[in-house]
Nucleic acid binder design. Sequence first.
RNA 1: GUGGUUGUGGCGCAGUUGGUUAGCGCGUCUGGUUGUGGCCCAGAAGGUCGCCGGUUCAAGUCCGGUCGACCACCCCA
Length: 418
Amino acid sequence: MSAFAPPPGTADIFPAESGSWRFLESTAAKVFTACGYGELRTPIFEYTEIFQRGLGGETEVVQKEMYTFEDRGGRSLTLRPEGTAGVMRALTNTDVANGNEQRVFYCGPMFRGERPSAGRRRQFHQIGVENVGRCAPLIDAECIAMLHNYLQTIGITGAVFTINTRGVAADREPAEKVLREYFAEHIDRMCPDCRTRLERNIWRILDCKQECCQQIINSAPSYIDSFSDSSKAYFEEVKKALTALEVPFKVSSRLVRGLDYYVHTVFEVTHDALGEQIAIAGGGRYELFLPGEKRPLPGVGFATGVERLLMAREALNAPVPEAGRADCFFIGLGAEARMKNLISANTLRKAGKNIALELEERSFKAQMRAANRSMAPYTVIRGESELANGIAIVKKMDDGTQCEVSENDLTDYLVKNI
RNA sequence: GUGGUUGUGGCGCAGUUGGUUAGCGCGUCUGGUUGUGGCCCAGAAGGUCGCCGGUUCAAGUCCGGUCGACCACCCCA
């Protein structure tokens, strides 16, 4: 049973499920296109430095979750662990660096070498967008509203939007100082992870979930107070716009997110049906450094986890897209009839009809059962006597009525009636 | 990476304190008078009980290892 299981953390998506996947992807394309986005398809692997510099060397993802390998030329390549860095790399080939806006969306597999569990695979799939080149509060709000709109459209209601601000690079130092002074005082009562975070990445203390740290974190001074006035005004403007756009949200200063490139607005979407730990989407504004570029590129974007969206839809009993079913099933008795059925099917399929048929010799009863199972509303029957008379029988399956149609008229008849 | 649960035909499950040819439901196939489905009935196919080793006269049932799956933590989508 496990002999042919796919590698850990990967999965085969069978036809029964892939309809839902296509629905999520095509709906995303529709919703995002309406906001001026176009699809950008980038490679599944990039030079390793794209991610190292893009995401920040201190991040969890870069440090221990990347699938990195050498190609034959000794270059270090990495299977993309997220979509933003590759998209930004591609966009440096456009006029985006001159302040011209680029709006793109992407979807596809991402790879992270972590231990699989609910809603987390090693190969997982994201649908995401990036709005690159500009920086303004209303752009952030527009982006978040589009995500809200998308979730509604795919039947995920009741999603919880949490937002926060990270300020800009210049705000970071004074804020970190405030936090470091506070946490240093209490660090002996905090968990081991937080002790290392105090030195390595103090922001991550804020989203620690250990019981012993909660009280201390909740009583922490508001680092946002130390942000510059313009950063604070930026965040206020975002909130104002979201309210005006009727996107419900809550603010949490403990939302920091794990990637180093975020500035200003950050947000995360969770759903009660999946629990707070599992975000169905997340994103924010960023400034991303790419190799060879002197200045970082500004942008705002988000990524949704397809597997997690599907989990949410399932929990909400959202309707599953109907599997394609045949319009008509052809039954044939004898070699000649089967050949004629195949020819008819070929013609009708070219006309856009979904045709199922039996191509091997099987009993009439077996073929009728197959026709029934196919759920096709019509069945065409061709046997010895029909061939001899130059006709075929067209049977309507719901009420069992049937009629004879001459061979010459059959295709036209079926194109019109089924 | 750390911890917990688990692994029996395509799917979902039984398998009692280790003991004769490993069962059940669904599904599949073939029939139920010669060519009409959905219901019903009969029969059939399909499993080296994840893998390796050990204990025993005897192991799906006990022990060890290993691999996979599921879940929690970490982190993220």
